[in-house]
Design a protein around this nucleic acid. Structure first.
Length: 256
DNA sequence: ATGGTCGAGTATCGA
């Protein structure tokens, strides 16, 4: 089973590239973020034509998350579960696919350390942890996939010095990510790859992609019973090249 | 040393 995640940065702008990628990468499950679509404009038929069932949670213009699946898509939940303060944005959708509880997450960017969105980001992480506490069991297969807008370690950004006193690398953000790992999630990509300079996001500006100036902020976090089944993991840099790419590359893991 | 691009929508904001 191949589980993938991709921040597509507008599914309207990206649909041809997503269709192309589904055709050759053949994921069983694809989590998408930043669809920037309402549920009414989500291209359900385009994906069903390729053999995928889908679930989308979006309000249009900003954010928006989706799950595509060839292995079933059951018990869909939009956003945080009951009992947790509702999110102002559409950043989380969860479903059970092929026996795995899958979430597609788009963690708030944070903007800057003194911006209210930074506190929103930290609060969002804590609510995600509470959501997992309430809805999932770390002794079962769970995958939380998406754009976390946090580089877990300094080696996950191209130049750590440039990221001091900015979002994506601050201790509070990394602590929030660690609390998800404390619950029972592991970085499935790192289970396979220990090398540096492996990124998932490159700014459109300044030729950052070609200069290898990237960040590893898209993650597949998996519980122990799932991460033990991972046989292969890849960031598909090919999808960041060519015509009208997203600024993120897709990431996937294969599980036995 | 700084900024360099996209995509939202159609002036700027967000990333």
């Amino acid at each position: 089973m191949r589980i993938a995640t991709w921040n597509v940065n507008s599914l309207k702008a990206r649909l041809p590239r997503v269709e192309e990628w589904l055709d050759y990468a053949k994921p069983d499950v694809l989590c998408m973020q930043e669809t920037k679509l309402s549920d009414a404009t989500f291209p359900t038929m385009a994906f069903s034509a390729l053999g995928y069932e889908s679930a989308h949670h979006g309000s249009g213009q900003w954010n928006g998350v989706a799950i595509l699946s060839k292995v079933g898509i059951d018990d869909v939940v939009d956003g945080f579960c009951e009992g947790i303060e509702a999110d102002q944005d559409t950043r989380l959708i969860s479903a059970t696919c092929g026996g795995v509880r899958i979430s597609s997450v788009y963690v708030p960017n944070g903007r800057s350390l003194d911006d209210p969105h930074y506190q929103y980001k930290l609060s969002w992480f804590d609510r995600l942890r509470s959501h997992l506490d309430t809805t999932c069991d770390p002794d079962t297969p769970v995958a939380v996939c998406g754009d976390f807008n946090v580089a877990p370690e300094d080696r996950d950004v191209w130049d750590p010095k440039r990221f001091r006193n900015t979002t994506h690398t601050s201790q509070a953000e990394r602590d929030a990510l660690q609390r998800l790992e404390d619950w029972g999630l592991q970085d499935a990509f790192r289970a396979i790859h220990q090398e540096d300079r492996l990124y998932t996001y490159w700014d459109y500006r300044a030729g950052d992609f070609h200069m290898h100036r990237g960040m590893r902020i898209d993650l597949i976090l998996a519980t122990k019973p799932l991460v033990e089944r991972v046989t292969y993991a890849l960031v598909d840099r090919f999808a960041r090249k060519g015509k009208q790419p997203s600024d993120h590359a897709p990431l996937f893991v294969d599980v036995q």
